[in-house]
């Protein structure tokens, strides 16, 4: 495995043309890991500054939208000396396939990390077929 120093650069989300934002905030694309397991697909997103109250997850047909608001700001009377990460909201959209059981999606957030569990439908689960030995 390569050992490289990684600078965590937050990517700013691009606005579609003709769309305006209602909050004067920067919007970032959260980094995600997507992991497939036997029973489900797990989506893990880094969203520092977000908790359960400031997170909106909306599923509309096949589109899963994750919106996180960050209320943190520079404290009153403080001036910024070094700024490396931008304070801003998070937004990312995913398209789900039919293989996901949309009724049983489960989301938890802990220490600024969102964990979405997307269970697979019974139809696509890998099944092992037992082989019987005939006498």
């Amino acid at each position: 495995m390569s050992v490289t120093m990684k600078e965590i650069e937050k990517k700013e989300a691009q606005l579609r043309e003709g769309v305006e934002r209602t909050r004067a905030r920067r919007v970032y694309i959260p980094s995600v890991d997507i992991i497939e397991r036997e029973e489900d697909i797990v989506l893990v997103a880094d969203m520092p500054g977000v908790d359960d109250k400031s997170l909106d997850i909306v599923l509309e047909k096949d589109t899963l939208t994750i919106d996180g608001r960050v209320e943190e700001a520079i404290p009153e009377g403080h001036r910024l000396a070094v700024s490396q990460y931008g304070i801003g909201d998070y937004h990312r959209v995913f398209t789900l396939s039919d293989e996901i059981d949309k009724e049983r999606i489960n989301a938890t957030v802990k220490h600024g990390v969102l964990r979405l569990t997307l269970p697979k439908t019974e139809a696509v689960k890998t099944r092992k077929i037992p082989v019987r030995a005939e006498a």
Binding site: E7, I8, K10, V44, D46, M47, P48, G49, I74, P75, G77, H78, R79, L80, A81, V82, S83, Q84, Y85, I87, K110, H111, G112, V113
Partner: peptide, 19 residues
């Protein structure tokens, strides 16, 4: 990444360390 802010009395260092 860190942000550093200060006022007359204190320095505030914040770092994004999710998870």
């Amino acid at each position: 990444k860190v942000d550093i802010t200060e006022n007359d009395r204190e320095i505030l260092v914040t770092a994004e360390l999710p998870g």
